[in-house]
């Protein structure tokens, strides 16, 4: 069943010419001289729900990602007990829009496991996400010990195993939905860095000890989200990741199926070269995706 789904998913996304997976990029590369190997959709606007729908339409529509009876897992960044307008967490409206879309497309189960930095009760409440998800079937929770599963990171250079919430390992559609903001240790926190909010605290601490950028890149050799949506409606420019700090207002969301490409574009919002961010450079070199802006097709739309 699962492999069938995966195949049909691949077919759909390839036909939408929206993935950086090898066959697609090769096909493109052969057809023209210099051709993009990844696609990023940047939606500018004010209404996050509308923006999300418009962006998804450019990637082949929700049907390309979510099919009836699928188990959908969403990974927003809801780490801190901080209000939506402070930009430390993914905006609740964006999470809600995604959950509603998943429900509309027949998802059987919608999980949002989040290993918050602040106590989960205050974090889920203050972030506005708990309130936004009221009445939906999404399950927002902080994974307990039993909710984790140890996985092998076969291609990891430093990270060989990690404890990941079961709902992230065993799902049919994984959506990474970080907020873009500056970060004290890594410079920026974008989509690949967002997985640090999934793994266990022990892993998290280990990654800091063992070379943070390499560990983040290593984990992305394992974790394969079907869709990346970066919330850049407002971005924390200083005092990240917790804030409060200075805010920028790009009023954008960034959609892609290539985490490296999505992060590379998002870095430019902070006036940074993507390859100055260690984990973007490493991920590009390891072939996880394309971080070279010259090779990324950026499609801008208004919504």
């Amino acid at each position: 069943m699962r492999s069938m789904r995966r195949r049909s998913f691949l077919k759909n996304t390839v036909s939408a010419a929206a993935v950086s997976s090898l066959p697609a990029s090769l096909a493109l590369a052969q057809s023209s001289g210099v051709s993009p190997s990844a696609k990023v959709v940047v939606v500018h606007g004010k209404d996050l729900a509308k923006m999300l729908d418009a962006g998804i339409a450019k990637l082949g529509g929700w049907g390309a990602f979510i099919k009836p009876a699928m188990r959908v897992t969403i990974k927003p960044n809801i780490a801190w007990s901080s209000a939506p307008e402070q930009g430390a967490n993914t905006h609740p409206s964006l999470v809600k829009a995604c959950v509603l879309a998943a429900e509309a497309h027949g998802a059987a189960k919608i999980s949002i496991p989040e290993n918050t930095c602040h106590p989960e009760k205050q974090t889920f409440k203050l972030s506005g996400v708990e309130e936004a998800l009221k009445g939906t079937k999404a399950k927002l929770y902080r994974p307990a010990k039993d909710d984790y599963q140890k996985v092998e990171i076969a291609k990891g250079k430093t990270v060989k195993t990690a404890n990941v919430p079961k709902d992230i390992v065993a799902c049919d559609c994984l959506i990474n939905m970080p907020v873009a903001k500056c970060h004290s240790a890594t410079g920026l926190t974008l989509s690949m860095k967002n997985w640090m909010g999934s793994v266990s605290n022990e892993d998290r601490r280990g990654w800091h000890r063992d070379g943070l950028h390499q560990c983040i890149a290593d984990f992305s050799t394992f974790i394969k989200p079907k869709l990346i949506v970066i919330d850049a409606s407002r971005i924390l420019l200083t005092k990240g990741p917790q804030g409060p700090g200075e805010l920028g207002h790009p009023d954008e969301i960034i959609l892609s199926t290539d985490p490296v490409a999505a992060d590379a574009y998002a870095a430019t919002l902070f006036k940074k070269e993507p390859f100055d961010i260690g984990y973007i450079k490493l991920a590009h070199e390891m072939g996880i995706g394309c971080g070279d802006l010259k090779l990324i097709h950026i499609e801008r739309i208004e919504a």
Binding site: S184, T186, R205, H208, L212, G278
Partner: peptide, 16 residues
């Protein structure tokens, strides 16, 4: 590990 080993860490700053 930042002072002694030059790791990118400052988790303390992140959490404060």
């Amino acid at each position: 590990i930042a002072w002694e080993k030059g790791e990118y860490c400052v988790v303390c700053q992140e959490f404060c």
